[in-house]
Simulated assay, not measured.
Amino acid sequence: MDWTLEVVIVPVSDLGRSVAFYRDQVGFHLDHETTNEHMHVAQLTPRGSGCSIVIGSLPSQNAMPPGSLHGVQLVVADARQARDELVGRGVECSDLTVFDERDGGTFFGFADPDGNTWAVQQIRARAERPLIPRDHRQRFAEA
């Protein structure tokens, strides 16, 4: 049986500010924003990812203080380029750190406006062997 991680709940204090940060500054795709009598949530997905984040007012989000999620990890093929893109969009990032010269040993981090923290790991192999094939990503983006 396959088990896939598809959604991470990120506790935030201001949905609009957080959508703007993750969509406009970090570059996640806004999949949807839903409002009804029970909730107001948004789902955003990093380019090339099969896993999304959900922010807003679900009961599970309300159980976590804004800014209490730490160490969620993103993976990119080129950490320097990814960091430069984020800094260029106004995201404050840590310096690149090389823990190990082998592929997978380079990291940097950033935080959202509430203090939820993200680690970004470089795995150069993702450039040639993405986890989700590029043709599938295109179909997913068009849906």
Rank of each mutant, 00 (worst) to 15 (best):
H136V: 15
Q25H: 07
L58T: 12
F110Q: 13
L131M: 12
D112R: 12
L15W: 06
R89K: 10
M1H: 10
V7K: 03
A111I: 01
Q73R: 07
A63E: 08
T4I: 09
C93V: 03
L69A: 10
T117I: 10
P65N: 08
V41W: 04
V91W: 02
A141G: 03
V10Y: 00
P11G: 07
R129D: 08
P11R: 07
C93A: 06
D84P: 12
I55H: 01
R80Q: 03
H136A: 09
Q81M: 06
V75N: 13
H29Y: 06
T35N: 07
A42F: 00
P133M: 10
R137Y: 01
S18M: 09
I55V: 10
C93G: 00
M64I: 03
R89Y: 02
D112V: 09
G90R: 02
S49P: 05
R134Y: 13
T106A: 15
D84A: 14
E85Q: 09
V72I: 14
A127W: 02
F110I: 12
P130W: 04
A20G: 05
G90A: 03
D84M: 14
S18N: 01
D114Q: 13
A111F: 00
V41T: 10
D24I: 03
F107L: 10
G27E: 01
T97K: 07
D14F: 07
F28L: 11
A82Q: 12
C93W: 03
L5P: 01
V19L: 04
G71P: 04
P11E: 01
F110C: 13
Y22K: 00
G50F: 04
P46C: 05
S57L: 07
S52M: 04
G56A: 09
S52R: 02
G105F: 09
T34H: 14
Q25T: 08
A141W: 00
M1I: 10
A111Q: 14
L69D: 06
L86Q: 03
